[in-house]
Design a protein around this nucleic acid. Structure first.
Lengths: 139, 139
DNA sequence: ATATGTGCAAACTGTTTGCAGCCGC
DNA sequence: GCGGCTGCAAACAGTTTGCACATAT
């Protein structure tokens, strides 16, 4: 598999690779920390001082439509974004707020009841305490 | 299993069974349509004309804390509530907006990677087209 | 020159909060 | 009479939208 730059990835989806769009996509590809729009904004503002939130939102919605990223909706008051597109679950620690990825057995999704449904999007969200926070509590 | 009234269920959790609280819980127990706070509000307003949205939100948050209901966060701009507490998945049709419940294999959740995690909440959200909408499209 | 992207500010939506009045025990 | 529930309105946060300016071809 050859390396594809962010700019190329955008062009492939017929999205004009403007500076802002490239930077936002690069950020998502480099950081799998499931950032919110705001986090991306704060990070990129140094590099692109004129950047506005509206551009972030516009761009992320564009990416969602083009399926360049996926939306993680684990908490009701925040939309998070992820450039990993394969199916995996997300675990959010209610103590530290970190979000962890985990693999899913593919057969998780063989839900007989949904035979006649056309499933286009699958999300698995768990919440609880992560090992770090559990350890710290014991201390 | 004996029948438990909404009022009893509230008392069991040390929540004073006021009229509003009883009605809201009864509504959730009777309708497994995963309503938003607004839907509940609109439905109950006829019965309780003075009812305010704030009370709905306050009450639902109270119920969440008492684990009388669970939150379904399948869409980012809406919090939905469900009085079914056993583990099941939710499928949202992107065409008609309806939400369907489906059973999950219990072994779905044996995720080795999460061995050291304490999981307190599990949500499985699918999206796509439901059979009804698929049929209508063909026509 | 034209089409498209960006950035500001205002608008909007859904949820939460503060506070005064009300009710039930 | 007291504690706590309710309801109004205002506050709030996150997201979206309208419009004018900037930019690139």
């Amino acid at each position: 598999m050859k390396h594809v730059t962010a700019a190329e990835q955008l062009s492939d989806k017929n999205i004009k690779p403007s500076l802002q769009r490239i930077k936002i996509l690069e950020y998502l590809r480099a950081h799998h920390n499931h950032p919110t729009a705001d986090q991306i904004y704060l990070e990129l503002r140094d590099e692109i001082p004129t950047l506005s939130k509206a551009t972030i939102y516009n761009t992320l919605n564009l990416f969602l439509e083009a399926k360049l990223v996926r939306l993680i909706n684990i908490e009701d008051n925040e939309m998070r974004y992820d450039s990993l597109l394969y199916n995996h679950g997300h675990f959010k620690c209610i103590n530290c707020g970190r979000i962890y990825d985990f693999q899913l057995n593919s057969d998780v999704f063989e839900e007989m009841e949904l035979e006649r449904f056309q499933i286009t999007d699958k999300n698995v969200y768990y919440k609880g305490m992560c090992p770090d926070c559990l350890d710290n509590k014991i201390k």
